[in-house]
Design a protein around this nucleic acid. Structure first.
Lengths: 299, 299
DNA sequence: GGTTGGCATGCGAGACTCGCATGTCTTGGA
DNA sequence: TCCAAGACATGCGAGTCTCGCATGCCAACC
């Protein structure tokens, strides 16, 4: 059945005349006559009594009219919804990110998206890069904000990646530390410090970076949480590396000083969307906003 | 938009594959591919992500799927309703009748229709032939049960008439009347009686019929209501004519004797439906039932 | 009784839809 | 590494559908 038949039927029912309906719809009277005939044949019932002047709905026509109006309204609603979705007046974005992206990058981007498109629903979940990429691949996420060195990123499940920025490393020092007022610090200057690390595994950023500088850091404390690391630093127990994205949440009684860019490899930060298929307009927009926010943060 | 597109879309969404959907619908894969493409073009959005193995709904596809299912369900409902209406499992009949048809003809017919088709709603209204025909013409009634002499019927607004039966006249007599046990009475035998008439106008049945028998009836009382006429007769105040259809409601303490058929013109009883257009199946059925019941009553 | 208004229909041009065969791309196995 | 299999896209041609035009037919109205 062609929905045009229903539109014609509705117009005829409203106007009470094939000719009038044809005029309003831009058809000829003949086309209207045939479409009504087609609908009557399809429904196997007479929808209009043909009078000397115009037509009148039969009882079965009244039955059908209710349904026809509902169907046409619903189709209209469908078109409306799809248009709204395309123009970001509806929809949903499920975004996942690594922990420190949640300090300011992701919330700032979400806030900016919500401000511009308040009808888009945004949900968020934390996770490690590998988990996020897997959830993306299984369509549990629309956008994943990942970080990692090139080889780590390459090892992830397929995804469409947008490089947002590279993440410089900084070092967090107790407030009164001798280097606390420097604008840049070389890693080598910290060879004798007590270090607070996130883990003691060899692939850890600190260890490999320090090795390249020719020393083996003395890891005095292993502390996973950034908030706890800060406590150790503030207490003067040691120093620790801080990714740039986490700097905004550093407590005021510690100093955070950039490392010289040559001393640590830069971790890339990426916005990932599903490899196959088209991201939703809202997801695509969020990636753009993430890109903007990242530029603002780093630049 | 062709609703077949929506059916194809739904099938593909359920199966996750053009090929599978094609198999279940009896199409080729190529037809499915084209219909989905047509729907996507019509909606101006991509409904499925094409994967290496099958397809997956996009977010806009999920939006549309809800609407598509609703539309298809509604269309299904429409077909179901029309079928139910045609087979008297739904619908409505508004029937009107002259007063004495309400004594037993019309209620018996309605009862019989309701017994066979309990889902058909029947409503009823009383009225004079002219009113009923007018309401029929303005589609306020579906069936009108009329009575009248041929010239009266001919003067009514156009309607499709079914002749149900002719209505013999009887005379109601006080229980102890000298003619009370007769099987037939000639009008002439009642020339000297006191008459109870419904009106005193010259076109009244009694007067014209009596005139043809060569006497002018002595109308002692003018009483409109049949129930009241019975009271006058029972009290021995006179005699009155009774149409056959009202006999069933005669009180037991009066006698009702058929008049000789030659003595009064027979009034016809008709079931009328709209002149133009098709009566609903339920209305048509009611006319048939009225015909049956009338045959039972008179025959 | 002619005229007018309004629905139905024969006809032909153009558009659409389908199936068939084939192309393209990805995946997975030899 | 290459080939086979699976799955969607697409060129092509036959058949069907739909439209507008012109005309027919019918009832109503002047």
């Amino acid at each position: 059945m062609d929905t045009a038949w229903l539109e014609v039927f509705r117009a005829v029912a409203r106007r009470g005349s094939f000719t009038e309906a044809a005029k309003t719809l831009g058809y000829t009277q003949s086309a209207v006559s045939r479409q009504v005939a087609a609908l009557e044949s399809d429904m196997d019932t007479v929808l209009f009594d043909r009078l000397a002047r115009g037509v009148r709905l039969t009882e079965s026509g009244r039955f059908l009219l209710d349904h026809a109006e509902a169907v046409l309204d619903r189709l209209d609603g469908a078109r409306h919804d799809v248009r709204a979705w395309k123009s970001l007046r509806a929809g949903r974005v499920r975004v996942g990110s690594f922990a420190t992206a949640g300090v300011s990058l992701v919330p700032a981007a979400i806030a900016r998206l919500r401000a511009a498109h308040p009808d888009v629903t945004v949900t968020h979940a934390d996770g490690l890069a590998r988990e996020l990429a897997a959830r993306l691949a299984s369509s549990d996420l629309d956008v994943a904000v990942l970080n990692g060195y090139p080889d780590q990123i390459a090892a992830l499940p397929a995804a469409r990646l947008r490089h947002l920025c590279d993440e410089p490393m900084l070092v967090a020092l107790p407030a009164g530390h001798r280097l606390a007022r420097r604008t840049t610090v070389r890693l080598g200057e910290l060879a004798d410090e007590a270090w607070i690390a996130g883990s003691s595994s060899p692939e850890e950023t600190l260890i490999s970076a320090a090795a390249r500088q020719g020393f083996r850091p003395r890891i005095s404390y292993v502390v996973r949480e950034w908030i706890a690391k800060q406590g150790f630093v503030a207490a003067g127990l040691g120093v620790t590396l801080v990714p740039a994205l986490a700097v905004d949440s550093a407590r005021p009684d510690i100093a955070v000083v950039p490392l010289h860019p040559k001393d640590t490899p830069l971790r890339g930060i990426y916005a990932a969307t599903i490899a196959d298929g088209t991201p939703s307009p809202a997801a695509a927009r969020l990636v753009d906003v993430l890109d903007d926010v990242a530029s603002d943060l780093v630049g």
